[in-house]
Nucleic acid binder design. Structure first.
Lengths: 212, 212
DNA sequence: GCTTTTGTTGGACGGTGTACAGTCTGCCGG
DNA sequence: CCGGCAGACTGTACACCGTCCAACAAAAGC
């Protein structure tokens, strides 16, 4: 580092998060290491710990930062507004594939997550879903959206469509058993995965929660 | 290791997976390292690579191994059978919390996953849902089940109920903004999370897919 | 019997998160 | 204007991690 011990680099927490986000977008989540972030900021690795308590906290901040891009529709019927929020959520999540599983593992409660929650609850309110049922409905909708998105993201290690089936055979082999239909079902899964499942399930859920 | 180079330990792939599973159950996923598995087997770390191509492959095998415990109900109406499979799935997944996000990140296609897929498709078939719609329905049901389970698992780092709200405030602070209702909504989420969301959503989905 | 394959070892490489002890800076109270 | 102090930053270090390489002995095949 071109700086003497004690001399300042003028970092702010926001800069750290921004640097991490840039790395995430360019090289993926695995590339987001404390050392890499520090390097990109021209700073020693430990310096980050003055601004972020933990790598885990940095990731949390990263996740919430991503959510800024999710727009909430201002007009339209309640159902259209809910669909809009969730469709936008799916789009933004698809742009940051590595993060998606994290949104299910560690529930995000940052500022942006709250903003979306409130928009959602407001839309549900207009649809007549209120109080405890509304919170539960939101939760179910969120689970479906994040889950469907996670499910349609291909593994980074084998992007080719045959990869899934190949992995199936490998896994079966490890388990010491082979199943005749492994290949077929795996192919089904990969062929029908995606947006259609998202839309279909979303429709069912919205129908269910607005039924008498 | 108490063995000369070239001398054998008599490992089989199955033993490696079993050792990894034991570590997972006792100390969590983070404790499952190649070195730790090797130590528990009384073997040098590299020895594992004769039985498993990769750590990633080991994890895949681990995931499928966990699914053996999911029973499929033999009798009952199609809807009860589907609910049974998914309820059992949820129970088994809850017993292996660290693995749950992985089931969405890296879709499992091992022998046991296939066994469950086929049981599910058979039940749906009896319910009149067949062909492409059946595959899509199964996918949606799976997403909901795994997602709901993932969502109700508390983070290992802060198991206390106030942790979620505290993290919320931290994240908001990092983002340089504070939101008055952060605390309130976070508390809602943690209070109403769980089995009820799973059951509610499952009901809506089953209603939706069996509607005319 | 000899040869080939394969399971295993020691050692090493390049990474990781983060704790510890210093050093200098900018700010605040007097 | 000055002294003191919090804290941003450095170098160093620890304890891990996944995985590759070369050597070697045991097992398997012919």
């Amino acid at each position: 580092m071109g700086r003497l011990p004690g001399e300042r680099a003028g970092l702010r927490r926001e800069d750290v998060v921004a640097a991490a986000l840039a790395i995430l977008r360019r090289d993926g989540l695995d590339a987001v290491s404390m050392r890499r972030v520090a390097t990109d900021l021209g700073v020693a690795p430990n310096a980050l710990y003055s601004h972020v308590p933990d790598k885990s906290a940095l990731i949390d901040a990263l996740m919430d930062a991503v959510l800024v891009d999710i727009a909430v529709p201002a007009r339209g019927g309640w159902r259209a507004r809910v669909e809009g929020i969730l469709t936008n959520t799916r789009r933004v999540l698809l742009a940051h594939p590595d993060l998606v599983p994290l949104f299910l593992a560690r529930q995000s409660v940052g500022t942006n997550a709250m903003r979306l929650s409130e928009a959602m609850l407001a839309a549900l309110h207009d649809g007549g879903v209120r109080g405890e049922p509304a919170v539960r409905a939101m939760q179910v909708l969120l689970i479906h959206t994040i889950g469907a998105t996670a499910f349609e993201i291909p593994r980074r290690d084998d992007p080719d469509p045959a990869g899934r089936a190949r992995r199936g055979r490998q896994a079966a082999e490890v388990l010491g058993e082979t199943h005749p239909r492994t290949h077929a079902v795996a192919e089904h899964l990969s062929r029908y995965a995606g947006e259609k499942a998202f839309r279909t399930g979303l429709g069912w859920l919205l129908d269910g929660m607005s039924a008498p």
